[in-house]
Design a protein around this nucleic acid. Structure first.
Lengths: 199, 199, 199, 199
DNA sequence: AATGAATGAGCCTTCATTCAT
DNA sequence: TATGAATGAAGGCTCATTCAT
């Protein structure tokens, strides 16, 4: 029961995820998902009543992936704080630049189309806040070690995150070049970097 | 002929614009547009072959409106530079908080859905750059008048714009409160206002 | 416009009527109607949004046919009152015995399935009352001419009608033979015919 | 085996009966029955191959219930013949007026939809004839006791039954009020009631 | 015997698009 | 130019029915 059904659910979510990554949210039909899963029309309806529910399930399944990502991605390793932040930002930069925005586009379409009820609102904000927290901690560590200068680590972290968010949005709409991303990141970093470290 | 056709085109674009504002891009059908315009199905096809072309035309018609907007919106008046920036930011804040993003949502859906060829890529970027320019000029003015402190007016303007972009994106997805918008804007402004900042 | 649309509507109702006669109400699909009309799927939806509406329209179109029927069917001719009543009863008898109950079955399914709102409730009762009235008048005439004996023409007419209704119902469910119909009709008639009855 | 199977069959028929009472015949799906029984899809198919067979089985199980009903309901008690007939008619009146027609609606749909083969035709006719018989006996008794006047007890019984059938049919389609039912019953009764008893 | 996951046929409904007028 | 009736493809959804376990 649970066994089989669970693995089927996993299969569906996995394949559906690929579809959402490829086509966004609005353009996805039950038929698309059915075909991606290699199951029958009725078979899919056995698990999810419509595209919306599939997407919400995909979002939910995404959370673990994300949660683990944020802090772990940043804090692991014996690198210096500066290097850790750089690594994190490299990651985000790649995300911004690559067409592979993962679910980002689908999420955006989903949330901006009013189909999102309340249930599905959390994951994205959770991810954002989790990243803010991670970066805040990094900056705090950096301030202690003398690598960074910040009167408000959380404020600076949050601004940085919003800039990244803005870069992502810009990248998704009108496209953005590596140079511009680098420039923005440098500019934001320069604010929390002791002027004497900057070379 | 040209006369008549032009005014018909204008009518279509005007009504279609309202539809796009209301429903975004993907959800809009030729039928929606036809009904909004009060013309016949065939009549619409006489001017535009599909939704995409209507939208592109709407975008093009939008540009003048935008271009005029940015600088004018900011530089008009005999207020102090500081007040002018505040006014502009108030504007953007309202935009972020209200669901009414004008064509923004439709544009986003359009550009992020791969349906945009090359032809129409400009408008959003153009608007962004136009705003960057306006704010850069404001900051430069402010530096001259001693109201602002900035080593790189354009860099600071751009960062500010990206934060606004990020706030908008966040607002569109998981929602955002006035307090948070205020906090972000204040934080960014404090960089170019606080005399002690850079030293 | 009206011209063309009206004739199309008439075509649809005519063909749909045949379908309802053949299959009743519940079993009829939009597809059935579409095929019976020889038009396209979308074409039907242009005129009626679902089976229910088609049926209601069929019912409405039926009324004139019916109204004209009742009295006319009975009172026309220069036959004696007795003969006129006999003719009418022959008619009903044929109706009871033949499987061809016209729309009766469909109407029954429609009204007994709760899908009938208020709008369409009238036709069946209207027809019944119209028939009651006709028969009442006949009996009254007969009493005057000395052919019939009745203390309450309307009461007798109504009872007769209910018996016919019962015969029809019986015929529709478990079937009924000509002999039984004849027997019932005779029995009811004997009440208003036999001079010795009431004494 | 037989044991277990029989009780399972009984369970199914019991629950299925409720479904048919509620939804009629045509609207009932195997799924409805499965859910009402709380058994598995496959489980139901083990006993009945389709809705039709379930319904026929329900009908068959209904007969005992009915047969016992008619005569018993009427002849039991030490009331006068007149009172016994009144009781029976009260019963029927309630049946006509209440929306709760038991299986009547489903039966009607079943028989009038051509899905009834020959096998299942009996129950309804059997019930009708059984009622005719009971009322015939009552009238005969009444004639003997001087309470009723009838030249043909069976003929009068049968007419009365058809009127009841007609009332039921009318009630099911266009609705009928208590006054009208009373009026009809009185009218029919007045025929077999000695004029001098009518006060 | 019993289960319930899976299948696929069938009907519903909406639109983009065409075309005769 | 303009109309809007008509078409048919596309996708949604529900069940009857089967079958491996």
């Amino acid at each position: 029961m649970g066994e089989r059904a669970d693995s089927k659910r996993r299969l569906i979510l996995e394949r559906a995820r690929e579809v959402f990554v490829r086509k966004g949210y609005r353009a996805v039909t039950m038929k698309d998902i059915v075909e991606a899963c290699g199951i029958s029309r009725g078979g899919l309806y056995l698990y999810y009543p419509d595209v919306r529910e599939v997407f919400i399930a995909v979002l939910r399944a995404e959370q673990p992936r994300e949660n683990e990502a944020a802090l772990q991605r940043v804090l692991v390793g014996d690198a210096s704080v500066r290097e850790m932040l750089s690594l994190y930002l490299e990651d985000r930069k790649r995300e911004v630049l690559s067409g592979d925005r993962g679910l980002a586009r689908a999420e955006f379409e989903f949330f901006s189309s009013g189909e999102a009820g309340q249930e599905a609102v959390h994951p994205l904000r959770a991810r954002f806040e989790s990243d803010v927290l991670a970066v805040t901690q990094l900056i705090t560590l950096g301030v202690k070690s003398g690598e960074f200068v910040s009167e408000s680590p959380e404020g600076d972290a949050r601004s940085l995150m919003y800039v990244l968010e803005g870069l992502r949005a810009a990248g998704q709409t009108y496209g953005i070049g590596e140079a511009e991303v680098d420039r923005e990141i440098s500019h934001m970093l320069s604010r929390i970097t002791d002027t004497n470290q900057e070379k």
